[in-house]
């Protein structure tokens, strides 16, 4: 395993297709769009990768939106207010 995986050689030595398929099908498990399908339903690696890209973009957008929301919420937090106390208490 270690020689197969070592990073230095990864560009030189061809990684096997099996290995890629293995990694892609692992990736598939974490994609809500195609996770739900039955296991017997094989999908193409291209499809999984496309879904992965879409999903990461979607998550990035969500984090962006949540960041905006949190910054607004924090903005409205008054230093003496109960939520400031809550934030402080969470840090203790």
């Amino acid at each position: 395993m270690s020689n197969r995986r070592s990073r230095q050689s990864s560009s030189a030595s061809r990684i096997s297709d099996d290995q890629i398929i293995d990694l892609v099908s692992k990736l598939r498990q974490f994609l809500p769009e195609i996770r739900e399908r039955r296991r017997s339903d094989k999908v193409s690696a291209t499809k999984v990768l496309q879904e992965t890209c879409n999903y990461i973009r979607r998550l990035h957008r969500e984090v962006d939106n949540l960041s905006d929301r949190l910054s607004q919420l924090l903005e409205s937090v008054d230093e003496d207010s109960p939520e400031a106390a809550v934030i402080r208490s969470l840090l203790m």
């Binding site: 995986r5 990684i15 990694l23 692992k26 990736l27 974490f30 990461i56």
Partner: peptide
């Protein structure tokens, strides 16, 4: 490399989900 990207993406997705 391809395997590294695939492994990192697998971990990264879950981290992002947790972040959300």
């Amino acid at each position: 490399s391809v395997p590294v990207i695939l492994e990192e993406a697998t971990d990264y997705i879950q981290a992002l989900e947790m972040q959300v």
